[in-house]
C-alpha cells in the first residue's frame, strides 16, 4: 500500500449486522483518528445477489448480506473493519457467527484489503472493559502515533455511542406516553379517513428492523397502513430484565433477551393491538426465541402475535398478504369491540 500523507486512510465498514447497533461508536472512533470512513450503501438487489452467491450456504440471511456489503467496499478502502464481537456482558453471548466473520471472509476472498479485527468478548476472563480500551488504543496506532489523540478518540467514540443509546432507548415514562398516544416514536403513520389508529410492537434484530431490503420495507408498509409502531430496540432495559427474570431459564443470547423481553412485556401489558415478530431463517437464537414467543402468546392470546420468517427466497407477495391480513384482523376486531360497547349502552 502506498502511504500518501496527503490522503486520509480509508476504513470500510459494512452496513450490516452490528453496524446497526454500534455505527456511532465505530465511525466516531475512526474519524477522530483522522481516517475517512466509508460505509457500504444500503442493501440493494445487487448486494444481495453477490452475497447469496458468495456466502456459505448454511449462514443466516443477515450474515450472508454481510458478505455482500464487505464486497461492495473491497476496492474502495485501505482497511476493512470487521470486529470479532462476542458480547458485551459477562453472562450473555452475542452470535458466534459474528466472531468468525473476519476470518471466514479472509479465507474465502484472498485479495481483500487488510482486515482490522479486534476481538472482544466480555464473557471471556481476560476480556475486561479495560482490556477493550487497551485494544482500541492499540488499534488506533495504525492511524495516529500520538497517544493523547487516540485516548481522545476512544473517549469521544464512547460518548457518541452513549448518546445513540440514550436517544434510541426510551424510559418507562416515554413508553407510557406512547401507550397513551401522546407521542410518536417512529415515522408518522399515514392515517386514512374513518380508520382506527393501531399500535403495533415491531420486534426483531436491529439489522432486520433497520434494513428495508431484508425486511421487505415492513416499516414503511405499516406506516402506509396507518400503524404506529414501537421497536424492540427502543424498549426500556429495566422492563426487559423484569420480563426475563420471570422465565425459569436464563436466555443467554443477549439480542434475544431484548426481543423476547419486548414480546413478553406487551403480551402482559396489552397496551398494543398486536405484535409482529421478524425472524431470520436459519438463525439459531431466533428459532429458540421464536418458539418461546409462540408458546407464551398461545397461553395468553389477547394480543395477537404474527411471526414472519425472512430469507433471500422470501416472496414479497406472500409477506404482504400476511401483513395486510394481520392489520385487517386487528382493525376489524377493534371495530367490533366498539360495536359491542354501543350495544351495551343501548340496553
Amino acid at each position: 500500500m502506498i502511504t500518501n500523507p496527503e490522503r486520509k486512510l480509508r476504513v470500510g465498514i459494512p452496513r450490516a449486522l452490528l453496524y446497526y447497533k454500534f455505527s456511532d461508536l465505530w465511525i466516531t472512533f475512526f474519524e477522530q483518528l483522522g481516517a475517512e470512513v466509508i460505509v457500504s450503501p444500503e442493501t440493494t438487489k445487487k448486494i444481495k445477489n453477490v452475497a447469496v452467491r458468495l456466502a456459505p450456504d448454511e449462514d443466516c440471511y443477515s450474515t450472508k448480506l454481510y458478505f455482500g456489503h464487505a464486497m461492495a467496499l473491497k476496492d474502495k478502502v485501505d482497511y476493512l473493519f470487521i470486529p470479532r464481537f462476542g458480547g458485551s456482558k459477562k453472562k450473555y453471548v452475542g452470535c458466534p457467527k459474528f466472531i468468525g466473520l473476519a476470518e471466514v471472509l479472509r479465507s474465502m476472498i484472498p485479495d481483500l484489503p487488510e482486515i482490522l479485527m479486534p476481538h472482544y468478548n466480555r464473557g471471556m476472563d481476560k476480556h475486561t472493559r479495560i482490556g477493550l480500551l487497551v485494544r482500541a488504543f492499540r488499534l488506533g496506532k495504525i492511524f495516529r502515533k500520538n497517544p493523547f489523540v487516540r485516548i481522545r478518540a476512544i473517549s469521544r467514540a464512547f460518548k457518541a455511542q452513549k448518546f445513540h443509546n440514550k436517544t434510541m432507548i426510551i424510559d418507562e415514562n416515554i413508553l407510557r406516553k406512547w401507550e397513551n398516544s401522546e407521542v410518536i416514536l417512529n415515522d408518522f403513520p399515514i392515517y386514512n379517513e374513518n380508520e382506527k389508529q393501531l399500535k403495533i410492537a415491531l420486534v426483531g434484530h436491529s439489522y432486520v428492523l433497520n434494513d428495508p431490503f431484508s425486511s421487505l420495507s415492513i416499516r414503511s408498509l405499516l406506516q402506509s397502513y396507518g400503524v404506529d409502531i414501537i421497536t424492540s430496540e427502543q424498549m426500556p432495559r429495566n422492563l426487559i430484565e423484569k420480563q426475563m427474570a420471570k422465565l425459569e431459564y436464563d436466555i443467554y443470547f443477549d439480542f434475544e433477551r431484548e426481543i423476547l423481553g419486548t414480546i413478553m412485556h406487551f403480551i402482559e401489558s396489552k397496551t398494543v393491538d398486536g405484535i409482529i415478530h421478524l425472524l431470520i431463517f436459519s438463525c439459531g437464537p431466533d428459532s429458540i426465541a421464536g418458539d418461546i414467543a409462540a408458546r407464551l402468546s398461545k397461553r395468553d392470546s389477547e394480543v395477537p402475535l404474527l411471526q414472519l420468517v425472512f430469507d433471500e427466497l422470501t416472496g414479497e407477495a406472500g409477506m404482504r398478504t400476511r401483513i395486510e391480513a394481520f392489520v385487517d384482523m386487528l382493525r376489524r376486531s377493534i371495530d367490533k369491540k366498539v360495536i359491542f360497547l354501543t350495544e351495551q349502552v343501548r340496553i
Binding site: V309, A325, F326, M329, R332, S333, K336
Partner: peptide
C-alpha cells in the same frame, strides 16, 4: 372467535 378473526396461518415455502 365471536365473529372476529383472531389468528391465521398460510403455507410458507
Amino acid at each position: 372467535r365471536n365473529g372476529i378473526v383472531v389468528d391465521f396461518a398460510m403455507n410458507t415455502v
